[in-house]
Amino acid sequence: MPSSAPYQPLLLKILHAVSGILAIAAMITGFLVYNTFDGRFGKLPIPSVDSIIDVHGTFAVFFFVIFPVFALYSFHAGNKRLLQKDSFQKLTEINKPIWWVSLQRIANTLMLISGALAVLSGRMMKEEWLPTGQLNHTWYYLHLTAWVVIVCCLAIHILMSSKVGGLQLLISIFSGKIRPEDSPQKWSTRLRNWFSNSSVNFAGGINHSLHNNLPLTVAEIIVLVGIVAALILPLVISN
Rank of each mutant, 00 (worst) to 15 (best):
Q89I: 09
Q89D: 08
K90L: 09
L91A: 03
E93R: 02
I94W: 01
I94P: 00
N95E: 00
K96G: 00
K96C: 00
P97G: 01
I98H: 02
V101K: 07
V101R: 05
L103S: 05
Q104F: 00
R105K: 14
I106T: 02
T109H: 08
L110W: 03
L110F: 09
M111G: 00
G115K: 07
G115A: 09
L117S: 11
L117I: 05
A118D: 01
A118Q: 12
V119G: 02
L120M: 10
G122D: 06
G122P: 05
G122T: 07
G122F: 04
R123E: 08
R123W: 11
K126E: 15
E127K: 14
E127R: 13
E128G: 06
W129S: 06
W129K: 04
L130I: 12
L130W: 05
L130Q: 10
P131V: 06
G133F: 07
G133A: 06
L135P: 01
N136H: 14
Y141N: 12
Y141Q: 12
Y141A: 12
Y141R: 10
L142A: 13
L142M: 14
L142P: 07
L142V: 12
H143W: 03
H143I: 02
L144A: 03
L144M: 11
L144I: 07
L144V: 04
T145C: 04
T145S: 13
V148H: 04
V148D: 02
V149E: 03
V149D: 05
V151G: 05
C152R: 02
C153D: 10
L154H: 12
L154G: 15
I156W: 06
I158V: 15
L159I: 11
L159C: 01
S161A: 06
K163N: 07
K163L: 11
V164Y: 03
G165F: 04
G165A: 04
G166L: 08
L170D: 01
L170N: 02
F174L: 03
S175Y: 04
S175C: 06
G176K: 02
G176W: 01
G176E: 00
G176V: 00
I178F: 09
R179D: 04
R179P: 00
P180V: 11
E181M: 03
E181W: 08
D182H: 03
P184V: 12
K186A: 10
W187C: 07
W187P: 07
W187E: 04
S188M: 12
S188L: 14
S188P: 04
T189C: 00
R190W: 08
R190V: 03
L191A: 15
N193S: 14
W194P: 02
W194N: 12
W194M: 15
F195L: 15
F195R: 08
S196G: 15
S196Q: 15
S199I: 11
V200M: 08
F202T: 02
A203Q: 11
G205N: 07
I206N: 09
N207D: 09
N207M: 07
N207P: 00
H208P: 03
H208W: 14
S209K: 13
S209Y: 13
S209R: 13
L210Y: 12
H211R: 15
N212D: 15
N213V: 10
N213Q: 11
L214K: 14
L214I: 10
P215M: 08
L216W: 04
V218R: 07
V218Y: 05
A219N: 10
V223R: 08
V223D: 11
V223K: 09
V225N: 12
V225E: 13
G226M: 05
I227R: 12
